[in-house]
């Protein structure tokens, strides 16, 4: 049984001009200890999926369909209080900007202790010991001394380490990391990613790593789901998706990444832009920009289909009937 199962999840935003579908019928699974990368452009619905999983969609956004199961139990329809007990304890979260993720008025020690004592029966002094050990583990130098420091006394990279410590402090089974390195310097990014990877391996924590950076995914993830306009375009093992993409969108995406050592005159470019949520075309959402689109792509929406490679792609090219029939 997978640790996390998302089935046919649909996230909607009712607005004055109608209902926007931010996440449209997506399914994915994460196994124990696995790192699943979720990649896509801004607005592809990857953060929405993450927020839906931790049960913190900003109103008026809501889950309009499908289900989310953690260790087999449904968590998408839990009352707030029950879901609160799961957040932090079973599902941790890391957000994009470490500079704003920590409350500026409390010491990091207080924020750690508060999180630990909320979810466990530890006394404050036990929690403090755990917190200091954890700070050492995430690589904060002199953790006893920094324990009473305020967030503004740390650099961005150090703050993200504290955030990781906060997300991991009650040993959750899964961490939803939403663009954990985007706000950091490139040199720090690699350290943070390496740290996150190491900690999650040590603690056996699964990670849903949301990013638009294919490089981060390639380095970190076991499997990757490529999202486009609120849907999953392709999913598979990282190596296969990077080297041997089957969905035309993923192919285009991979083709647009410059590679060291490859002498290419001009990178491939996907014409046009991702449609706005109000203007998603019928059929496959990618069809207006797809170089290989044919009639069926404009009318019917493709499911994830097994391809001739090892990935699964939501593309009619891999449906025997439509290609040959």
């Amino acid at each position: 049984m997978a640790l996390l199962e998302v089935k046919n999840l649909r996230v909607e935003f009712p607005t004055r001009r109608g209902v926007l579908v931010a996440v449209d019928d997506i399914s994915l699974e994460i196994s124990e200890g696995e790192v699943l990368g979720v990649v896509g452009e801004s607005g592809a619905g990857k953060s929405m999926t993450g927020s839906a999983i931790i049960g913190l969609l900003e109103p008026p956004g809501r889950i309009a369909g499908g289900e989310i199961r953690l260790e087999g139990e449904r968590i998408d329809n839990l009352p707030y209080e029950q879901m609160r007990r799961i957040r932090g304890a079973k599902i941790g979260a890391i957000f994009q900007d470490p500079l704003t993720s920590l409350n500026p008025l409390y010491t990091i020690g207080r924020q750690l202790i508060e999180t630990i004592t909320t979810h466990t029966d530890s006394s404050d002094s036990d929690a403090q010991k755990m917190a200091i050990d954890l700070l050492a583990e995430v690589g904060i130098p002199a953790p006893e001394r920094r324990f009473d420091s305020y967030p503004h006394e740390f650099s961005g990279g150090m703050r993200q380490r504290v955030v990781i410590a906060l997300a991991l402090c009650v040993n959750p089974r899964l961490i939803v990391a939403d663009e954990p390195t985007t706000a950091l310097d490139v040199s720090i990014q690699a350290q943070i990613i390496a740290l996150l990877k190491r900690l999650c391996r040590d603690h056996g924590t699964a990670v849903m790593l949301i990013t638009h950076d294919m490089g981060v995914i390639a380095e970190t993830a076991d499997r990757v789901a490529v999202m486009y306009a609120g849907r999953i375009a392709e999913v598979g093992a990282v190596r296969d998706v990077v080297k041997d993409a089957r969905h035309p969108y993923t192919e285009g995406l991979m083709g647009s990444i410059p590679l060291v050592g490859h002498d290419v005159k001009r990178l491939t470019q996907i014409e046009g832009a991702m449609p706005r949520l109000t203007e998603i075309p019928a059929g496959c959402a990618f069809n207006p920009r797809c170089p290989k689109a044919f009639d069926r792509c404009r009318t019917d929406r493709p499911e994830l289909l097994s391809t001739d490679g090892t990935t699964k792609a939501a593309c009619w090219l891999y449906d025997e009937e439509s290609v040959h029939g």
Binding site: R84, R87, A93, F95, N103, H119, V163, A167
Partner: peptide, 8 residues
């Protein structure tokens, strides 16, 4: 948001 995500 992060405080909520920590389950406080």
């Amino acid at each position: 948001k992060f405080a909520r995500a920590r389950g406080l």
